[in-house]
């Protein structure tokens, strides 16, 4: 690197540059102390569910092209991680969730003076997937799913059904901070058992697709969107809830046949944040777009006009309260 001994004529100064640089650096340091004085930048901060992430990503992408002076950021933290670590402490304006807000989260929010307002932004069919090569299985019952996914449950495929191969499962599931995890645990595992923890856990659903695609004996679950993006890479299982096998699809989710795994998706706005015109604009935009093909493009069922009207009413009521 800097092997340049003796040589070219020395120029004077460099002190001025040096001091200038030091000065700017100092100014940045000072900026830390004078945060309150600076004008609030126009920002919309969102955290939460990775299931809702594709909708939020599509909405935000269109939104900033229409309003280039507003900066939107979205983090994938899982529904629960988003509520308890970001939204309720007042660090984000919106929280995406693939389940309703829990009671303890409500309490945490109100303790911090945050009032969450719920907006429905789509419907999902939680999808159980296997490798396309797994030709021995097309449909499972909820009971079998419980056997596979509960703690100390099945280790090998043959443990569940005898005609399934005598090979170990490879598990890919949602991380515990994820709403998908909560929903799956609630509806499939139930109160009496724990969700197994020797699985590859992630709050990025796309990782699960990659994992399941990579090994013939893998099984995983996540939001329908990630399946519809990759119908050839993985195989979705039909679910038998006692009334025959039902394939996950936008239609069966919409009609309510795909039970018990079809579920509504939400975004929660902090009422206090709605006072910021940038946030209000974004939420209104989000609600409008949630009723369009933009949602089906990313693999979910858009909300109905009725739901959209309810959302807008809720938004307007909140705004009136604030004013």
């Amino acid at each position: 690197m800097s092997r340049d001994p003796s040589g070219w004529a020395p120029r004077s100064v460099s002190r001025r540059d040096f001091l200038a640089a030091t000065g700017v650096a100092g100014a940045i340091g000072l900026a830390g102390c004078t945060r309150a004085a600076s004008s609030e930048p126009k920002e919309v901060n969102i955290a939460g569910s990775s299931t809702v992430f594709p909708i939020a990503e599509a909405v935000a992408s269109d939104f900033v092209q229409e309003y280039p002076d507003i900066n939107v950021s979205v983090s994938q933290t899982g529904s629960g991680g988003g509520f308890s670590n970001f939204f309720c402490p007042g660090m984000t304006d919106l929280n995406n969730a693939s389940r309703s807000i829990a009671e303890d989260e409500q309490t945490q929010c109100s303790d911090n003076g945050i009032e969450p307002i719920e907006f429905t932004v789509g419907t999902d069919a939680l999808t159980v997937v296997v490798n396309p090569e797994a030709d021995w299985v097309d449909c499972v019952t909820i009971d079998e799913l419980r056997q596979i996914w509960r703690a100390d449950g099945a280790e090998r495929w043959s443990d569940v059904r005898e005609d399934w191969p005598d090979e170990p499962f490879e598990f890919y599931g949602a991380a515990t901070v994820s709403g998908t995890f909560d929903y799956f645990r609630e509806t499939v595992i139930g109160e009496d058992a724990n969700h197994r923890n020797d699985y590859s856990a992630t709050e990025k659903d796309r990782t699960i697709v990659r994992g399941v695609n990579g090994s013939p004996y893998a099984i995983g679950y996540f939001g329908f969107s990630y399946y519809s993006e990759n119908p050839d890479a993985i195989k979705a299982l039909a679910i038998d809830n006692g009334e025959g096998c039902v394939e996950p699809s936008l239609e069966t989710a919409k009609s309510g046949e795909y039970q018990p795994l079809s579920r509504p998706l939400f975004t929660y706005a902090a009422k206090e944040s709605l006072a910021d015109p940038a946030v209000e604009k974004f939420v209104r935009y989000f609600i409008e777009k949630a009723a369009t093909d933009l949602v089906s493009d990313v693999g979910y069922v858009p909300i109905t006009e009725e739901e959209k009207r309810k959302n807008l009413d809720r938004l307007d009521t909140a705004l009136e309260d604030l004013a």
Partner: peptide
């Protein structure tokens, strides 16, 4: 954040 859609408008 996982994804940001605008350019930073302040420190």
């Amino acid at each position: 954040p996982t994804t940001v859609f605008g350019v930073p408008n302040g420190l």
